[in-house]
Design a protein around this nucleic acid. Structure first.
Lengths: 209, 209
DNA sequence: CCCCGTATAGTCGTTGGCGAATAGTCGTCA
DNA sequence: TGACGACTATTCGCCAACGACTATACGGGG
């Protein structure tokens, strides 16, 4: 029983969901959706079933019964083992306490940004700014709806985090646009030289096989 | 030649790097590392070679020559096609202009947070806060070093973005700790009830197979 | 009464990501 | 000089992720 690799957070979500009682995989999926977990954790059937298998191999969960109703495919109901509960606690503790390096798409985009001419970049960043505003508004209004339904804030902190990140990104984008346009970023000449060097003076296609 | 799926940003990085001239895969890797791209884009050999293959199949890059020096493995040098340059531009434009849904680990952690008791969560979040401070300081001092070497800011904006996100997360964590402790988050009774229900009153292991 | 859409439950095949392995070359230091 | 480690360059095999697919049950309208 090797300690699982703690890669896919879906596995942790499964452990977490099983805290509230035994369930079969499909049921886990619907429960997670009801609780909105799928907004924060990638969830789809293929992954779910393979993750459940892994957890069983690792001895963190265990089948309690396999029911067959009529000719429906047979459902296997799983429950948490004590090892599973322990792993849940440790894993979640680690996830909360320790930041990990991640690779957001926009960071990649920024690192390749000099590959497009500055005024084009400004145009694109403005578009992003607008879309960020929209996303923020949507999240906030969703939060208001939830408040009316008296969902405790405790179960919506992920959303507050998302909003914080989005707002911070929006500010960053706005100030970046500003700096490029005002020339305060500096090396716009260098940037343009860079572009011209590799955009203008390139040999055309030799043969179009 | 189907338009590639624009999934792995490493492919875009390859296109971007080839803008500055033909190169073979290993060379691409070292160049990207020199330029610090590997901090923003996941890079390892396995993925690199398969990505290059995909790009060739899609007609976005094309081999110019395959050199063999002595008995060393033969190197295949690739160059960008015009289609490749176009794809670079469109893909990068999309990445800059359009936010995509992502699944940061900490968001997952927050969504599962109620699975641990409040005072434990507070302790863990404090630890995270410290580590975030450290990470921020490191990034900032790295920036100072780069400044002394006269690296233009243009090539370091990814880092500024990272710092912005980390700082925003640090503020979020601090205020969350505050809210839980001061009871301003509200439902701490509910939280504790939730925990006690599923932590205390659980049946022990039946058989230890 | 039958047909069709939707919900239930899970399986399967493909693909991509990744790290380890391979294998030759060059410099160096004892 | 020959052993060793660092660098160059690529290949391989495994496994996880995913999404499309299968198949049954159920409910309601025509």
């Amino acid at each position: 029983m090797p300690r699982p690799k703690r890669s896919n957070p879906l596995a942790l979500a499964v452990l977490s969901t099983l805290l509230t009682g035994p369930a079969h995989p499909y049921e886990l999926a619907t429960t997670m959706r009801e609780r909105g977990k799928h907004e924060s954790i990638r969830l789809n059937y293929g992954s779910l079933y393979s993750v459940v298998e892994q957890l069983e191999r690792a001895g963190l969960i265990r089948p309690v019964e396999t029911v067959r109703e009529g000719k429906r495919p047979e459902r296997t109901v799983y429950e948490l083992t004590v090892a599973g509960r322990a792993e849940h606690d440790h894993w979640l503790a680690e996830l909360l306490s320790t930041p990990v390096k991640e690779y957001p798409a926009f960071e990649a985009a920024l690192s390749l940004m000099p590959g497009l001419p500055p005024e084009e970049v400004v145009r694109l960043l403005r578009v992003r700014g607008l879309q960020l505003e929209i996303a923020i508004r949507q999240l906030k209004s969703a939060r208001d709806v939830a408040a009316e339904h008296e969902i405790p804030r405790l179960f919506l902190i992920e959303d507050e985090y998302r909003v914080a990140l989005l707002e911070s990104e929006a500010r960053f984008v706005a100030s970046l646009v500003d700096e490029i346009e005002s020339g305060r970023l500096g090396e716009v000449e260098l940037w343009r030289a860079f572009i011209d060097a590799f955009r203008g003076g390139a040999e055309p296609e030799k043969n179009s096989s």
